[in-house]
Nucleic acid binder design. Structure first.
Lengths: 229, 229
DNA sequence: TGTACATCAGTGAACGCGCGTTCACTGATGTAC
DNA sequence: TGTACATCAGTGAACGCGCGTTCACTGATGTAC
């Protein structure tokens, strides 16, 4: 698996990659509708040939989604690693900034995972783990701060039922983070994704363009709110 | 215009309404792809007949989008009006709750305006004013509080360039609200839309279901953050 | 090292669909005198 | 009130496209002896 052996295997791996690459280019050019025939045309193949590589259009879509989550998570972790470990607020800002950059550079991939679901497509369970990698790239900072005793956690009283829900996701988002901070993490995540989506959809046109300053400012306020320093 | 006169005009108004209604049903059933032929079929018409009512598919889409913004704004204003005028925090919570209810009841309409743009469709300027009605339904509460001297505005120092951008939208969002609160209003809006979008897209599945409590809690925290009381 | 057989990538035709938009037309509704 | 003409809703055929998926096939690559 590390290095494909035969020429056949090498060719297969490369074509699989090329198919996904063309699919992404097409998403970028034509919007959300993915056409297997158009991909095959671009690659100089007959449309049925694609079925040697992906069992169906949905399977190709799933592969693209998994790749997108993974790439995004990698980019976020890299941005995080570039900041000194104990500067939690700066790490948060760097990761959020990277998320936005990644989205602006590849809006179609961002839309694929955080935009409206593609009509007729239902994401399989395979996509859950990669999606969680993205969330934990953000929440991991709060968890690290909490572990280091550097999280200024405001103790907010919560509805017991909500607290139970929050504890249930604590395994994923970070067990040392108090429930009220977990709630804020989810809200903060929604805000970041929401701002990027609004920007990409052109809802800020006329008001905030570029939205760099607004985004950076909001992200800084979120870091405060989360108790990161 | 108040009451269509002739039978012809009455029939035209009614069919226009029916076309939009069928279009919405179809969006709900088939996802984001809107088919004029399918709408015509549903109405027992020949597809070309629709061109007497809408010049193109895009024009129909635009009409649906404008209607969605308008309906949503109306619903928000109604929810706002149901709360005592000077209870600003409660008004905010009521309006946000109504926004979520509306979205959960009509996810396709919400996706139409706050989801990823429909491929190949570019929203015309006609949609800007209705979109702003929705935003001001939320920001109007902060503006009212500010006008009544009841806004606990935290004075946060801002980058001058950002402050300029914020002042530019102040005419729309409320001139008496200080810039730092305007920034928070936009961020809060993004958070609310973002949470609803994540919920609709199934990103909360397994963690927060139903998301009622999390949403209500986050919205309450936003009210605090905005200085509403 | 060479041959026999198995694997599998890619072909090309076909099935059975779908779509938006244009156009000349019929026939009903509305208007002016 | 009745007739002549104009307006306009809806028809049906056509244009020129698109799509995902299946299937029997050829011929090249890989494997076992």
């Amino acid at each position: 698996m590390a290095h494909p052996r035969s020429a056949r295997e090498r060719a297969r791996a490369e074509l699989t990659r090329e198919i996904k690459e063309r699919a992404l280019t097409q998403l970028a050019e034509r919007g959300a509708d993915l056409s297997l025939r158009a991909i095959a045309r671009d690659l100089g193949l007959v449309s049925s040939a694609l079925y040697r590589y992906f069992r169906s259009r949905d399977e190709l879509l799933t592969a693209l989604i998994v790749d997108a989550y993974d790439d995004l998570a990698d980019a976020l972790l890299a941005a995080d690693a570039a900041v000194a470990e104990e500067r939690y607020a700066e790490r948060w800002q760097a990761v959020c900034a990277e998320l936005r950059s990644w989205a602006l550079e590849q809006p179609h991939r961002f839309a694929l995972v955080y935009g409206s679901p593609v009509p007729g497509y239902r994401a399989p369970a395979t996509t859950v783990a990669p999606a969680e990698r993205v969330m934990t790239a953000l929440s991991g900072i709060a968890e690290a701060a909490a572990a280091a005793g550097a999280l200024d956690a405001a103790a907010v009283p919560l509805d017991p039922a909500l607290e139970a829900q929050l504890s249930a996701v604590a395994g994923l988002l970070g067990p040392r983070v108090p429930p009220s901070v977990t709630a804020r993490l989810v809200a903060a995540f929604a805000q970041v994704i929401g701002m990027v989506n609004l920007e990409l959809a052109g809802h800020f046109v006329g008001g905030f363009e570029p939205a760099d300053l607004l985004f950076a400012h909001s992200v800084r306020e979120l870091a405060d709110l989360l108790g990161l320093r």
